[in-house]
Structure formats: C-alpha cells, structure tokens
C-alpha cells in the first residue's frame, strides 16, 4: 500500500510578524520556518502504518518555495521514503489551487491513502483536504484521532463537536490528522543522515499542467490592535453592568 502525506512549510508562530508596505503580504523572509505540526502528525501516522506492515511506501509532498526541501528532509528523516517538491511561490497559491495541484500529483502517484494535517497552523483555512476529496471523488474522514486499516478499508476515529464519531471508508481515501492522533517522533540523527540519500524530486506547477489561476485575492492584512489598559471594577455588579451596557457582551 502506498501512502501520500502532505508537508507544508509554515513560519514559526512564536516569531514576531510584520507586514509589507502596502499590507498585502506578511513579511516571512526573516522568519524561521518549520513543518506544519499537523502534517508532522500525518507523516508520523503513515510511518506507524508502515511499521505495522500495513503500508510499504510513504511519499511526502510539499508545494512551496525551494527552501522547503528542508521541511521535506525532515519528513524523510522521520521515515518517509521519498519526497516531491512542487516549486511555487507560496504567496500566489490559494487552497483551491493547492488542491488542484495535489489532484494532478495523485493521478501520477496513485496512492491508496492520503494523510494530511487537518489544517495549516498559519492561516487555518481547513480547506485543501476537503477540496481535494471533492476533485478526486474520494471519501474523506477529517479530524482523525485514530486509524486502522483492514480489508482495503480505513476505519477512522474522529473528533467532532461534543464527542467522537467513527467512519469506515473504502480505499483510496483521504484522512486528516488531529492533535490526538499521535505524538510525532523527533527525527533521529541517523535518520537525518539517511534522509540525504533518499530521493527528493522537484517539479513545477507547469510540469503538472495546472494553470496558475488563484481564486482568492488578498486585499489587505491588519495587525490586531494593541491591547488597551484594562479598568478595575469595584464589584461584580459593576462588571455585569459594564459587560451589558458598554461591551454589549450579555
């Protein structure tokens, strides 16, 4: 069985962000980047399935700038078998385009299962897996906290509002990883050394025959307003009054 995992390069969220001059972009140049945490969980899950003998090949894919080879090497160091970088300027992408690119790759790679992070921690769009499932016509199970594969079906425990639910999907299918699915391993030093020799192919969006036509246009970013100093209230009654009359929260 072949598993495709996606690996996105995201800025370190602890970093201090700034905007470019006309506020249409976040200045990410000087920021540290790392693998989107949910994607690490996805890769980890794929590796565990391989360790259980269920899967035999793990391919990790990243769509992003040339610098993202580092994030792909991280996936390889954890235990993925090979990696593909689809080179693209991240700022020109939107979820629909990413899904379209992935759909083309899936045609080429023919995986039996795609495991993706449930969202990207930077913009938290939570759209690509769902769009991809729609384009491919595959079943999907989002927000997984457990997976089990049996008889060409994947059983997925899911976190939903107010509880859990269980889906059983025929393969090929898409699963997105939630926090509780596993605790991703740290790439070991021997793993890092081995990753250097694992194949990492690079291709362009044009190679895949996808037209670069974004559907989302970024108009402007705004920094959240500076927090203003609070006020000290005399008692609960005053707090309630302020919440009701000034903040209009109740």
């Amino acid at each position: 069985m072949k598993i495709l995992t996606t690996v996105r390069r995201v800025p370190d969220l602890d970093a201090r962000f700034s905007l470019n001059g006309d506020k249409t972009e976040i200045d990410t140049e000087a920021l540290d980047h790392k693998v989107n945490y949910f994607d690490e969980v996805a890769v980890e899950e794929a590796i565990r399935l391989k360790e259980k003998g269920v899967a035999d090949e793990i391919v990790s894919v990243c769509i992003g700038s040339g610098n993202a080879t580092k994030e792909l090497r991280t996936a390889l160091a954890m235990g993925a078998d090979r990696a593909i970088l689809v080179e693209a300027d991240e700022k020109t992408l939107d979820p629909y385009l990413v899904a379209a690119i992935l759909a083309k790759l899936v045609e080429k790679e023919q995986p039996d299962l795609i495991i993706m992070g449930k969202l990207g921690v930077d913009f938290e769009n939570t759209q690509v897996p769902q769009l991809l499932a729609g384009m491919l016509g595959w079943p999907q199970a989002t927000f997984a906290y457990s997976t089990e594969i049996c008889d060409s079906k994947v059983t997925v425990g899911r976190e939903v509002d107010g509880g859990t639910s269980t889906f059983r999907l025929p393969l090929p299918a898409i699963v997105t990883a939630d926090l509780r699915l596993n605790e991703p391993r740290f790439p070991s030093l021997p793993g890092i050394m081995k990753a250097k020799r694992k194949p990492l192919d690079t291709m362009t969006i044009e190679d895949l025959g996808v037209a670069l036509e974004p559907r989302v246009k970024t108009v402007r970013f705004e920094m959240p307003p500076e927090r203003e100093a609070g006020v000290i209230v005399a008692d609960v009654a005053e707090l309630i009054q302020k919440l009701r009359d000034e903040v209009k929260a109740i």
């Binding site: 790392k34 080879t69 580092k70 090497r73 991280t74 740290f186 790439p187 030093l189 050394m193 250097k196």
Partner: peptide, 18 residues
C-alpha cells in the same frame, strides 16, 4: 563528506526541539 549545510541546519533545529 556525508554532511551538508542543510544537515547542519537540521541538526541544530532538532537539537533546539529536543
């Protein structure tokens, strides 16, 4: 010869994580 700048970076990154 088995090393590269990218490996140096990854090693530092992993060390930081640990």
């Amino acid at each position: 010869s088995e090393y590269s700048k990218e490996i140096f970076d990854m090693v530092l990154g992993e060390a930081q994580k640990i």
